Simulated scan of single mutants.
Amino acid sequence: MKKILLFILVATTVLSCKKEKKTDNGKLNIVTTTSMVTDLVKKIGGDYINVQGLMGSGVDPHLYKASEGDVSKLVNADAIFYNGLHLEGKLVEVFEKMENQQKKTFAVGEVLDKNTLIGSDYFKSNYDPHIWFDIDYWTQVGTYVTKKLQELNPENAQMFEENWQNYYNELISLKEKVNTTIDSLPEEKRILVTAHDAFNYFGRAFKFEVVGLQGLSTATEAGVQDVQKLANFIIEKNVKAIFVESSVPKRTIEALQAAVKSKKHEVEIGGTLYSDALGNKGTVEGTYIGMFEYNVNTIVNALK
């Protein structure tokens, strides 16, 4: 990591002496971190920017470390958009170094009112960073990204605004559709047990009790007592299904299922949810809207 930081300092110092550049096709070169942020920036920027996302499907941003190839992308970017709120914990120092070297970096989560965020002792920001699971938050983030792209590329400001308005309407439709689906599930059955607490904003927005085996950060490990305690909770609440997450090893939930079974009770694995990353590129779940709909349908169908 020290070698990477040294490379950044040298490269950005050289770049700071040059005029900010665009790529050969004249478009801004934007680098993003998580697949959720990448999807949003692409939707707003459209054909008027180049976007390179560092993290693909199934990648855990909590544990992600920058490779030398990533550093090269970051150094050559006109701007960097990342989630912030310490989600990309091992990249924070990288971003801070780049910002000190006059690189334009935007932590999209910082635009939100901190008084409304869910607190967390797991992150240095003291907030739960999984903000994309609140659609209202994501629309605020979209407005922020639009403004920053307009500032970076004023000649295409109107196109960015039009793209955002179209996507904003899609997000409003998504919220209505999700509410309709969830309304079919009685509130007493709205208990969501997953590998880690990525869904607290989702739970608050749609009245689910959310319990994660590993806590908010996948950097923490679930112990035997954690598994046994949650197994007892599942039996007490008669939870029908628990869920694997695409970016967290399946063994943690399988261990929980086995613990429940050892107590003469049955609980199904209701499916795999997308938490810290979208699905594969080119699939419906590879988009934010597709991911959200898939998760909700999976949860509701399994818990009914």
Rank of each mutant, 00 (worst) to 15 (best):
H196Q: 09
I135N: 01
T272V: 15
I235Q: 03
A195H: 08
Y288V: 04
Q214F: 01
Y137S: 02
G282H: 06
W132V: 01
T180P: 02
S275Y: 03
F208W: 00
T298R: 06
F7R: 15
D60V: 07
V267F: 05
V227P: 03
W132N: 02
D128C: 06
I242Y: 07
L91C: 09
F123I: 03
T180C: 06
F206W: 11
S16N: 13
S67R: 04
F199P: 07
G58K: 05
T13N: 14
I269H: 06
I253W: 06
T298I: 11
G279D: 05
S57L: 07
M36L: 10
T116W: 07
H62W: 02
S72V: 06
K177A: 11
Q225M: 08
G286H: 04
K18E: 14
A195M: 00
D60K: 05
E161L: 13
V193K: 03
D183T: 13
E176Y: 11
G215P: 00
V94S: 03
F123H: 02
N280E: 15
L185M: 12
Q158S: 15
G109A: 09
S57P: 13
K264F: 08
L112Q: 00
Y201W: 06
Y82F: 15
E188T: 14
A205H: 04
Y144T: 01
L91E: 04
G69I: 04
T272W: 05
A255M: 14
N76K: 15
I135P: 00
R251N: 13
L15W: 05
E268D: 15
T33K: 00
Y274L: 13
I118R: 08
N297I: 08
T181E: 12
V108M: 01
Q214P: 02
E245G: 10
F206K: 05
Q257D: 10
V178A: 13
E93M: 11
T34I: 10
Q150W: 08
I234C: 10
L216M: 14
E170L: 12
S247R: 03
P249C: 06
S217G: 07
N163R: 06
D128I: 03
D70A: 10
S246T: 10
V41E: 05
G26D: 08
A219N: 13
I235K: 12
D78R: 12
G109T: 00
L213I: 13
M291V: 08
F202Q: 02
S16P: 04
E254C: 01
Y201G: 04
N83Q: 13
Y122I: 03
I172W: 01
A222H: 09
A302P: 09
K103R: 11
H265W: 08
A259M: 06
K22P: 02
G58Y: 10
F233E: 10
A258H: 12
N238Q: 15
D70L: 04
A219E: 14
V14K: 15
E151C: 08
S247W: 09
T32E: 05
E96Y: 12
A66P: 07
K97F: 08
Y294N: 10
A107C: 05
V94M: 04
E187C: 07
T105R: 04
E88K: 09
L15S: 12
